[in-house]
Amino acid sequence: MSRIFKFNSDVDTDQIIASQYLLLPNIDEMKEHAFESLSTDFAKDVKEGDIIVADENFGCGSSREQAPAVLKALGVKAIVAKSFARIFYRNAINIGLPVIVSKEVYDYVNDGDTADVDMNEGVIKTAGRDFNCTKLPEYMQNILNAGGLIAFLNEDK
């Protein structure tokens, strides 16, 4: 079971990981500072396999790939949002972090609820319901299935 961490709309990449931490030498050092400006204990509380559920436009703002990278490094298994900002969405798939569009899940769950996420079927079981999520275009699904762009390109060779 995954614990749900719930976020509002327009979560920007500066909130996920602020610019001043981008100079730290690696993602593991950066990840402790995730969502710091929102004064949450997210970075401490999140466990391997947990998920983020968000309203519209998750990941808007900068092109920093460190934003999805710190969330993945903290153990986030998937992000379910009503919509995603474009660069964040591509970056997440390129590093093998599933980003799932669902217009419904957000409205049915509370922070701290649990969910079962079936990535293959694109189904999220939570709040006593099964939610079917929008599937990725095949090209992007193949990158995600390979575990990200590096693995995908290496498969090609």
Binding site: S63, R64, I87, R90, N91, N94, I95, G148, L149, L153
Partner: peptide
């Protein structure tokens, strides 16, 4: 348009 560093690395190659 903007891209992340992994995607940039793929373009460089």
């Amino acid at each position: 348009s903007g891209v992340g560093y992994t995607e940039m690395a793929a373009i460089l190659g």
